[in-house]
Computed example of a mutant assay.
Amino acid sequence: MMKKLLSTLLFSIGLLATAQVGIKTDTPKAQLDVNGDANFRNKIGIFNATDNTVFQGNNDQLLVSRGEGFAPIWKSLRIPEYEPNKFYLIYNNSFSDKVGVTFTSSEDSTVGFASRGATFTKGKELNSLPGFKKITNLSKTISVFSTQSKAYFQFETVVQADFGAVGSVDTSIDYACGIFVDGKLVNLRQRNLKAITSTHPFLTHTQIGIVDNLAKGDHTVDVACTRLGSYGASGNKLSIGINGYSNINDFIAQSSLKVDVYEVPEVFNTIIN
């Protein structure tokens, strides 16, 4: 009798090792298919065939599948801890451009010196501002997920003119660069590049713009510049974000845009290592 019972038990184990077994299902989809609740009273371990060890995971870890043919792996589940009504950095990125824009003296803006303050106002449509050219690779799309946000834009470039060497600073060009969100002006800086005692002078241009509480969703960001006016600079070229002459190279002259969006979180996405 004992031999028969032992034979039956060994036969059943052999079936389990070679066939699919279903619990509460007649059509198992895996070697062990449980249709219902499962209760593990002790620990679950992952066998490592390399060193014959069993790793039971650490506290607060989850067992995650890596797909058919691969052993599962323990992962740590991290849920960010946010304090209410505080801003957190949600989006951060930076972009660069070596194409830049150039202006001839015939492209001086039609906006007169006296009317610049009235023309360059917050919210002005880019399409309504004459003479502005976009810096191509700085045009990007960003996403905002909360109604309470602060978006920071830091733009930097190099501006160069093809002035010859002169002893007077009366030769110069006015220019302006603006940061636009959804086609509307949010920040603008005007500057003047003067001739000096050496040829092809250049300067580093930096500006920072801030926008509060953008609507939830996607937004376009553009940087565009214009040549405003010339003083004793008839026929001279202005280059922004591109090296017009060999005293600087395209690495030095390139433009960059850094975007940081801080939000009071409304949506909490879990993150798995």
Rank of each mutant, 00 (worst) to 15 (best):
G112S: 01
S94G: 12
N85S: 08
N137M: 06
I90R: 12
N127E: 15
V181S: 00
N85V: 09
T206H: 13
G117D: 00
T102Q: 14
P201Y: 10
Y88R: 02
G131D: 09
F103Q: 02
A195T: 00
S128N: 08
V186Y: 09
A114K: 00
D97M: 00
L138R: 02
H205A: 06
F180V: 03
V181R: 06
W74Y: 06
Y175M: 01
V158P: 02
K86R: 09
E107I: 11
S139C: 07
G112M: 04
S198Q: 13
L203K: 12
T171R: 14
S198D: 13
F153T: 01
S96W: 15
Y91S: 03
T121H: 00
G131P: 06
H200W: 11
T199V: 13
N192H: 12
E83R: 08
S172G: 10
T102H: 13
V101F: 11
N127V: 12
N192G: 10
V101D: 05
T102V: 10
I79K: 11
V101K: 05
Y82V: 00
Y91Q: 04
A176E: 02
C177F: 14
V166I: 12
S109M: 05
K75C: 11
A176G: 03
V181C: 05
V186T: 09
I135M: 13
F155G: 06
V144Q: 00
R191A: 11
G167L: 12
G164F: 15
Q160L: 06
D97A: 01
S106P: 07
G164Y: 14
L185T: 02
L203E: 15
C177R: 02
S109V: 03
L77W: 09
F145K: 14
N127A: 13
N192Q: 13
P84V: 09
N192C: 11
I208N: 14
G112T: 01
N93M: 07
P201A: 01
K98E: 15
N127K: 15
R116I: 02
I210D: 08
K150T: 07
T197D: 13
H200C: 09
T110Q: 06
A195V: 00
S198Y: 14
A176K: 03
G131Y: 05
Q160Y: 08
G100S: 04
V166L: 15
Y82L: 06
H200R: 03
S76F: 12
V111M: 00
L77A: 13
L185S: 01
Y175G: 03
